[in-house]
Design a protein around this nucleic acid. Structure first.
Length: 271
DNA sequence: GTTGAGCGTT
């Protein structure tokens, strides 16, 4: 009962999910728990966080056991100032399965099978609200969104763009291998028990190793951000493979004569 | 140390 969302969704068959927006990036489930629990029975609280940084995205999901309590929490906590910022509490429109929620209540996956329009009120909100929301959303699209923009890119970039071409695995394999090796992640499973104090047990991974996945994103010092276990010279697997190429005999004087001397590290041509 | 529209995890 102390840790929520540690092993995925506990039980969301008859729970009402509330979406808490406009919360600070430092607000945690433990901070929202007492607030929401005071107005009703909170089943679980989940705060989405970034995959790379692991920081909160600025919104949380609070699941209530009863809709009345959830509704009350929405009216009470909606617009409340938390951590110096006014939060917005509203019923979640979409479920964890990317499926629409009926009246804020999360329905099971098989529910949609037999759930043929049992309710003719898919929008608990007023028409004005919907229009307003659309308008605001459109306006937001024009403006640059930083937090969300980067996340969208990342979430869609989860798929590895490996080209399974079995043409010549002799050379092509070098690239794939290099990527795989770069995926070195040092995650200790014992970290789960090491944490004490967090009731909800937020999965806040402080691992900065993920930065290696995208060094050209937010690395003011790429040199330092580089994996310490890997040498910059070996960072050019392609060159290393090329070294094995038969075309390796190059006269030293020729190199000098050539202005574009192929340096082992500077030869990092764009892929 | 940062940002601020929106909809989620093992």
């Amino acid at each position: 009962m102390s840790h929520f969302g540690r092993s995925g969704p506990p039980d969301i068959k008859d729970t009402y999910s509330l979406l808490v927006l406009n919360i600070t990036f430092r607000t945690t489930a433990d901070d929202l728990f007492p607030l929401f629990d005071k107005y009703g029975k909170v089943v679980d609280i989940f705060i989405p966080r970034d995959r790379r940084t692991g920081e909160s995205r600025g919104f949380a999901f609070v699941r209530y056991k009863y809709a009345e309590e959830a509704q009350r929490a929405v009216e009470k906590l909606d617009g409340r100032t938390v951590d110096g910022r006014d939060i917005m509490v509203q019923f979640a429109k979409y479920g964890p399965n990317a499926e629409p929620i009926k009246k804020g209540r999360i329905v099971e996956a098989f529910s949609r099978s037999r759930g043929r329009s049992r309710s003719r009120s898919p929008r608990p909100r007023h028409r004005d609200d919907y229009k307003d929301r659309d308008h605001r959303r459109r306006s937001r699209s024009r403006s640059r969104s930083r937090s969300r923009g980067r996340y969208e890119r990342d979430r869609y970039s989860t798929r590895q763009r490996d080209h399974p071409r079995h043409s010549s695995r002799s050379r092509s394999r070098s690239r794939s291998l290099s990527r795989s090796q770069s995926r070195s992640r040092s995650m200790s499973p014992g970290e789960y028990k090491g944490r004490g104090g967090g009731k909800f047990g937020e999965r806040r991974n402080r691992s900065r190793s993920i930065d290696s996945a995208s060094p050209a994103r937010r690395s003011p010092s790429p040199e330092r951000s580089l994996s310490p276990r890997k040498s910059p010279g070996e960072n050019s697997p392609e060159k290393g493979d090329g070294d094995r190429s038969p075309v390796r005999s190059v006269s030293p004087k020729l190199q000098k004569a050539d202005s574009r001397s192929p340096s082992p590290h500077s030869s990092d041509q764009h892929e």
